[in-house]
Each structure stands twice: as C-alpha cells, then as structure tokens.
C-alpha cells in the first residue's frame, strides 16, 4: 500500500504513540474527580433512608460521638460491634456497600496497613513465629496493635463517610454553624471544600493548557519543575481568593462574627435518634474501657 505523502503528519514523530498524560496531570485530574464524586455526589444524600431522615445536627453529634467511642475503645469486640453498627446504618441508608468497599475500606487498608505493618515486628512481646531469612520476630502484641489500629481507623472512617454521604455537605456546614462550632473553623472547612475543588480544577486546567502547548512529552525533571512552579501559582491564587472572599463578606456587613439562620426543626424521631446515639456511645465507652 502506498503511503500518501500529501498529508503532512499531524503528530510529532516522538509522540506518535497515543499521547500519554503525565503522572502529575493524571493525579491532579483524578483527585479532582474523586473529590467531586465524594463531595458533590448527592444522590445518596437524597435517597430515602434511615440516616437521611435524621436532623443534620443530630447526625453530626451522634456520629461524632460514635467516632470518639471507636477511637477510645480498648476492646476489639466493641470496635467490631461499632463497625457492625456502621454497616447496619449504611444498609438502612441505602449506601452502596460496594462503593464503601472500593472507595473507603480498601483505601484505608492500604494506607493504615502500611503504617500498621511495622508494628507487627517492632512491638516487643512474645514471639509467635520468625520471618524466614530475616529472623524478625512477629509478636502477639504486635499483631494486636496492628489489628486495633486497622479496625479503629476503618470503623471511624466508615462512620464519618456515612455522615458525609447521607447529608448534603451544605447541611453539614450549616449544622456545625448552628451547633456553635467556632465560625472560623466552619468557614475554613467550607472554603476548603469549596476551593479545593476550584483550585484542583485550576491546577488541572493549567497542566492541560501547558500540555497542549508542548510537543511530545516532558521528562521527569521538567515535570517536577513545572509542578513546583504551578504550586507557587496556585498558592498565590488561593491566598488571593481567600482575601477577596473576606472583602466580599465585609461588603455585605460582616463585622467579625457570622450570624446564621437556624431553620432546622427537630422532630420527636430526631430526639429518639439522638438518644440512641448517646446510649450506644455510652455503652461503648463503658464496656470498651
């Protein structure tokens, strides 16, 4: 077959293979997507389930109590019971368990696992077996420590994710404000949520516009230089953004303290739910000592 010569090659020979995205670009883009999914996917929050029907204030206080109970529990069976409770709450609130497993549990397993793994070897105690060749002792106490860390973090994360998944984020913020959490904290939390997204989007756009102006690919060093320069620009942008928001608040009468409308109305079932959370948490505190 004859190669047509009239058509100039549109692609630079070097990038003839399908253009691959750089590591940083890919990471930033996927981070933005995951965050968007996590924070803005409100279909679960709008579903008709148990947690969705509870007043946001009760959810914030109740789930927070359970998280604290989990963190302070010294009994594996209590931690596992709290995990089972979280699972039950998820099922009753129509949270897709597969999503919990792939997004939360596996992620936490890898992250916490990498921290917990050394504990198996370095915690002093009775050696059960030795790692072949290396002769590192694996201690019963080590396994216990790792197991505690892992189950605690998995349970606490699941509980917090349930709060975020079953409550529109703006209701979480509002509940925090109404609960008299210091305004600065809520505003920072809100801005983080709001602007992490804007900034990640900006970052992704920045990388894309650079990429489109480049022929071929960047080598590792150039990518790192680009990343460092972009981080500087982003930092500048976020500082600018927050000082501008401050001005926008001033312009509408803000004088150092934010006043909010509290339009939550607690129903009897909300009090019931709050009572339930408190009893479970007290139970866990007592038996988990």
């Amino acid at each position: 077959m004859l190669q047509s010569t009239s058509e100039a090659p549109l692609v630079h020979p070097k990038s003839k293979r399908k253009r691959r995205q750089g590591f940083i670009e890919r990471t930033v883009r996927s981070l933005a997507d995951v965050l968007e999914q996590a924070l803005f996917a409100e279909e679960v929050a709008k579903a008709d389930g148990l947690l969705q029907s509870i007043d946001p204030r009760v959810k914030v206080v109740g789930l927070l109590l359970l998280v604290v109970a989990t963190a302070s529990a010294h009994s594996l069976s209590i931690i596992l019971a709290l995990f089972a409770l979280a699972l039950a709450l998820a099922l009753l609130s129509h949270v897709p368990i597969r999503r919990l497993a792939t997004r939360v549990w596996i992620g936490v397993l890898f992250f916490t696992g990498s921290i917990a793994l050394p504990a198996i070897f370095i915690t002093p105690g009775v050696a059960l077996v030795h790692v072949p060749l290396l002769h590192w002792p694996i201690t019963a106490q080590g396994i216990k420590a790792a197991l505690y860390l892992l189950t605690r973090v998995e349970t606490a994360t699941t509980l917090s994710v349930l709060l975020v998944l079953c409550t529109p984020w703006n209701q979480v913020l509002k509940a925090l404000r109404v609960l008299r959490v210091p305004v600065v904290f809520v505003v920072i939390l809100g801005m983080t949520y709001r602007y992490i997204f804007v900034l990640l989007q900006t970052a992704a756009d920045m990388f894309e516009s650079r990429q489109s102006r480049l022929v071929g690919r960047l080598d590792g060093q150039e990518q790192r230089r680009l990343a460092a320069a972009s981080v500087g620009v982003l930092l500048g942008k976020s500082l600018q953004l927050s000082s501008d928001i401050y001005l926008a608040m001033l312009a509408r009468g803000y004088r150092g303290e934010v006043y909010t409308l509290d339009d939550f109305k607690a129903q009897p079932r909300d009090w019931l739910a709050l009572g339930g959370f408190v009893i479970v948490a007290l139970f866990a505190f007592w038996f988990g000592r």
Partner: peptide, 18 residues
Amino acid sequence: VQLFNPTVFDEIAFGPLQ
C-alpha cells in the same frame, strides 16, 4: 468570590443577617 454560603437561600440571607 461573591458566593460563599452553603445554599442560595443562605447566600441571600447573609447580608440582612449580619
């Protein structure tokens, strides 16, 4: 910059509330 509240309702209520 202008819009920093959780909901549109809160956004519009912000000025009078302050």
